[in-house]
Simulated scan of single mutants.
Amino acid sequence: MSAAEAAARERAQMQREIARQLRGWTWRKVVVYALVIVGALIVINHTLMHMGLDWMPMSQGRQDLFAGWPLGGVLVLAGFVIGGQTPSATK
């Protein structure tokens, strides 16, 4: 086998491995973006409610409990944690 054939085989193997790893990340990216976006929207909504823009049919206390800073922060952090994990290598 020539050096060119060996290099081509190595390149093909590397491309297959990259494609395999990218296929495994698709669902994770969707989950990460969804968590971060939903969390950010909750934080923005909560901030607007505290500024006096009362458009939701829910009391301020319930919003603080269910859709406040803690829930928004947890969703954003969960998205970042899931996004920061590396996929496990299976061979």
Rank of each mutant, 00 (worst) to 15 (best):
M1S: 15
M1F: 07
S2P: 13
A3C: 00
A4E: 14
E5C: 07
E5L: 14
A6K: 11
A7F: 06
A8T: 02
A8R: 12
R9F: 06
R9V: 12
R9W: 05
R9E: 12
E10Q: 15
E10P: 01
R11S: 11
Q13N: 14
M14L: 13
Q15D: 15
Q15S: 15
R16W: 12
R16D: 15
R16K: 15
E17D: 14
E17F: 14
E17A: 15
E17W: 11
E17V: 15
A19K: 04
R20F: 02
R20G: 07
Q21G: 00
L22G: 06
L22H: 02
R23T: 02
G24H: 00
G24F: 01
W25G: 01
T26I: 15
T26D: 10
W27E: 05
W27G: 04
W27M: 07
R28A: 07
R28C: 03
R28Q: 09
K29I: 15
K29S: 14
K29P: 01
V30N: 00
V30I: 11
V31R: 01
V31S: 02
V32G: 09
A34C: 10
A34D: 01
A34N: 05
A34H: 00
A34T: 12
A34V: 04
L35N: 08
L35A: 09
L35I: 02
L35D: 05
L35Y: 05
L35G: 05
V36Q: 07
V36R: 04
I37F: 08
I37T: 13
A40I: 06
A40M: 14
A40W: 12
A40T: 15
L41R: 00
L41T: 03
I42F: 05
V43K: 01
V43S: 08
V43Y: 00
I44Y: 06
H46S: 09
T47M: 01
L48M: 14
L48N: 08
H50S: 05
H50K: 10
H50E: 09
M51E: 06
M51Y: 10
D54K: 03
W55F: 05
W55M: 06
M56L: 11
M56D: 00
P57T: 02
P57N: 07
M58W: 10
M58L: 13
M58F: 10
S59Y: 09
Q60P: 04
Q60I: 11
Q60G: 08
R62D: 13
Q63I: 06
Q63C: 03
D64N: 10
A67Y: 13
A67C: 11
G68H: 11
P70C: 04
G72F: 10
G72K: 02
G73Q: 00
G73Y: 02
V74W: 08
V74K: 12
V74D: 08
V76Y: 00
V76P: 00
L77D: 08
L77Y: 08
L77N: 09
L77K: 05
L77I: 15
A78K: 09
A78E: 04
F80V: 13
F80T: 10
V81A: 11
V81D: 02
V81K: 03
I82C: 07
G83Y: 02
G83W: 03
G84C: 00
Q85P: 01
T86G: 05
T86C: 01
P87G: 03
S88L: 13
S88I: 14
S88K: 13
S88W: 12
S88H: 10
A89T: 05
A89M: 03
T90I: 15
T90H: 14
K91T: 01
